[in-house]
Write a protein that binds this DNA or RNA. Sequence first.
DNA 1: ACCTGAACACCGTTCAAGT
DNA 2: ACCTGAACACCGTTCAAGT
Lengths: 224, 224
Amino acid sequence: VAPPTRSRIARDRHPLTRERVLRAAIAVADAEGIDALTMRRLGQATGVEAMSLYHHVANKEDVLGGAVDLLIDEIPAIAPRPDWQSALREQAMAGRAQFTLHPWAAQLLIARTPPRRAYLQYLDRVTGIMLAGGCSYQLAHTAMHVLDTRVFGFSGEFVTMPDLGPEIAGILDGSKAHLYPHIRETLGEIVHDEDAEFAFALDLLLEGLESRRLSGAVAADRSD
Amino acid sequence: VAPPTRSRIARDRHPLTRERVLRAAIAVADAEGIDALTMRRLGQATGVEAMSLYHHVANKEDVLGGAVDLLIDEIPAIAPRPDWQSALREQAMAGRAQFTLHPWAAQLLIARTPPRRAYLQYLDRVTGIMLAGGCSYQLAHTAMHVLDTRVFGFSGEFVTMPDLGPEIAGILDGSKAHLYPHIRETLGEIVHDEDAEFAFALDLLLEGLESRRLSGAVAADRSD
DNA sequence: ACCTGAACACCGTTCAAGT
DNA sequence: ACCTGAACACCGTTCAAGT
């Protein structure tokens, strides 16, 4: 019985959609932090009661995952090219730039289970860049995991997670393989060894560090 | 007015302490997942009402952080030695082994703000190993960040986080410098450049990958 | 000093009811 | 089809009261 508010008017002109909900979630998380992003606060931000949101998103997990998907989709796709090292560097820098703008999203990407569509497509692009650069399937696969922030260091590898999630299950049973062509192409050609991949990443770093130590050069050191 | 339960008897013989609370938290998280770890569930696991826990821990964040501290403290310390590469590899493997047993703790370590005592001491050990191996301060500092799972990839670097937290603040103002001798020793001798450190880590990986591509060797590939 | 019961201010989510 | 109000089953945390 209250008169139409400004937010109600705005909503009438721009009816609520899943994307508008997710955009609002990004705006709230950016401005007030991820802890401030409650369903009630999100309803307020979209000019609607909290319960109405469930018509556009499945639940809160879907809000968080969907918001991260949206941000990953915005990362420029670097096309594969002969100099794969510089293409990969460019791709990694583009990803880093986006997550520097939205640190809470990086936190969700790393912490949250399991990987979703957008991130797997990102990894698929990385794999494609390496394959186009003449890397073997095995090397491309291993490199993808090395570059995967979720793998590096302590954190477990998603492929051995108890729940693979619908996307990875969809790759394995073939129903979603078309979404991730390079990963699918690679999958049948490689052996997967989590411990070996960790050791591999570690070896890469140690080798590089040792050669810097011997030469006295450090890329990060610009003072001399 | 209920008769003493078995848990009450157990508590009388082993009075509740901060460590017992944290051990129980680890047990619950291991067995039932981190989401199942509520204050009420933790009270149940220690044979006490939830509210009694606040006599031994500050709040839930302290429970989670304290549990991770306990697990990190259990990681064997690898003593610095001339062959720093193998010492560092051993240290990293020991860390990985612990967090493989408690994946939820790795998740908390990566996601949680800000770094606490135990993890900083772990990084201090890593720094000490590199310094003992003849690395420059700048290289040791950069390598510490490269090996820091929280830095690698997208996630921001804790030193540029809005809230450094009491531990890092304590290093900077000198009041806690004695806890992290190698970090303190290094800090005055280096320049800190987050972007350069990211690029450095990326270069290490790309160089290593390229040399594998050319030689056709992949450490993770045991089939040929 | 340590523990408790009741309560407070929140959550995410449901459901029947409205338009 | 979309939105709402009230309610449910939880949270973490406080506080005065017990021993």
